[in-house]
Design a protein around this nucleic acid. Sequence first.
DNA 1: GTTCTAGAAC
DNA 2: GTTCTAGAAC
Length: 722
Amino acid sequence: MDVDGKSSSKGEEEKKKSAMVVILVGAPGSGKSTFCDRVMRVSTRTWVRICQDTIGNGKAGTKTQCLTSAAAALKDGKSVFIDRCNLDREQRADFVKLGNPQVDMHAVVLDLPAKLCISRSVKREGHEGNLQGGRAAAVVNRMLQKKELPKLSEGFSRITFCQSESDVQSAIDTYSALGPQNTLPSGSFGQKNPDAKVQLGIMKFLKKVDSPVNAVSKGDSLKDSVTTDKENDSSSIGREEVKGGEDLAFCSLESTSSFDNVPTLAFPPISTADFQFDLEKASDIIVEKVLEFVTKLGNARFVLVDLSSGSKILSLVRAKAGEKNIDSGKFLTFVGDITRLYSGGRLRCNVVANAANWRLKPEGGGVNAAIFSAAGPSLETATMERAGSLAPGKAVVVPLPSTSPLFCREGVTHVIHVLGPNMNPKRPNFLNKDYKKGCEVLREAYSALFEGFASIVKSQKTFYEEPTGKLGSVQLVSPVDFKIPRKNQFSNADQKTGATNGIDNAQNEKNNGSMSKAWGAWAQSLYRIATNPEKHKNDVMEISDDIVVVNDLYPKAKRHLLVLARYEGLDRLADVRKENLQLLRTMHDVGLKWAEKYLSEDKTLIFRLGYHSAPSMRQLHLHVISQDFDSKHLKNKKHWNSFNSAFFLDSVDVMEEIDKFGQATLKDEDILSMELRCHRCRSAHPNIPRLKSHIGNCSAPFPASLLQNGRLLFATGNGTNQ
DNA sequence: GTTCTAGAAC
DNA sequence: GTTCTAGAAC
């Protein structure tokens, strides 16, 4: 195609305008080629992947060859991926020069853990760059040492940082969704602030913005929504930032305002749309209930959201809230798409309410369909794990999986499904104009919704509050309420009716039900101790608001104790997110304290603190276990390997991983059937009795990896040369 | 998580 | 014959 002529046609002008260069930045094994492949497989845009490893007739070529090919592809109006490491500024500079006012210059940084890149590089066969085997580790390490993360000032209009697999996935989604004419907002997205003193869970998701294709009009969300001074402030800041561009482009703006860290519930008006509930009555109830809970909850915000800018219910509520003098910093009304509050409106809401249907299914339209669609299929799965259906007036809290786009993009950690009364004869549970009953149910629904939100706020207390420091004062066996009180579902069946806290019982039942990963009755004992430690006075060694310490009932070593987390919903490590980091630190500190106590009593002991990748017993628990494994209860392969394979995750590593990536990498249960190896000298043994007799005698030093980073604890003066 | 036990491995 | 594992039941 000849595009050399200056007088290009209008069509070509358009085409050229939307071309872009995406420079991948990442070590070997970071997934650059996969990234390109996956985007190119589904994209409707024409992409050319320039790969230095293959550009020389299938073999490695030169940088100049890459530049020439890239320039040629751009001339053709094609978009280009530069698939080479590009780890330092100098390497990138020549490619950045390919950009011009018609060509967007982007960088996508695959900044994944070195460990992961190395293991991928080592494993891969037939890799185009032929970087395989043991050499890979050295190469990757060397390259990462001179890594220089790209900056907008190098000439990029957009940089996307990916620091976890889920970051990579959302970047792939973003680029895949780009049609031939679409552009992406400018700015730097996804880079975590390395200097942040307190790592807040919400930070993870802030700076990712989807392709604007489906974005709601920013004008609407910013202009019409504002009812409070604070909101006015933040929106005017927002508008300044976006001047000159249609899309939001917050360039690595990490807000330090405490306002952004206030737990916030976004909720749609319940029952007023399809369920045809009277707007006057509904607005009275909303204001009444908000007033009640604003007072109750203290540090939390409520946002009533409606999509249409002329929303009658919103203006009614606004007027009535004004009359009642509701603190405008705690309650606001907002016009916009409830599934895009952050990306579309700069409003951070960690909890979103869904006007659900009784089946808790995505079907129908309105808010329900929109939320299920925006959250992706994982919401449906997570919902079904909690409840199968919902009665009018009830709510169910569903933690949103971190893979959900609503989590990644909008920062939503929980969805609360709520079902209100129905005044529409064509819908189930029609109340036939019975507004006495209707108002009752609507009040109940808002109470249930706000109680659900309150329970989340409470469970994330450590996240929203300043860390309170070490657990100095240990309470000895005094009754302490569980973080989220709930009925004892195991012993008292007739309590199942009449939800005392308004939250539908279905969510409790399902926790324990027949879902894929259900906990058997035998797996509940730790959960029960964490819930009611005062009922287990004989077993409990320490209680605080956050933890309970017990001896393992079947210790697998001379000393083996468990630090239980007293948080509802944290059944195992898989449930742990960044907002629980402080809890992990507390558990670790408590574990250390006990290990030190025992070390002072017996200097031959060595301790290790860690978690099982997939525990058998419900309720997050930290094992504090001495490394003698001298116990009659250690009987089989599973016992041994659960403490002496990668299945056992050291507490120090878990905390680091949660801090960096927001979740821990868990090992599959398969590795529990691995061969039996001594944890010191790594010798293999045919069966448990032979292994046990070996470890009774083996005094070889521990493997180097265990001697690092404080994974093993020795008595002071006992050195680390064990 | 443990206990029990059939049957494989020795 | 004895030892040991692994799967089912709880």
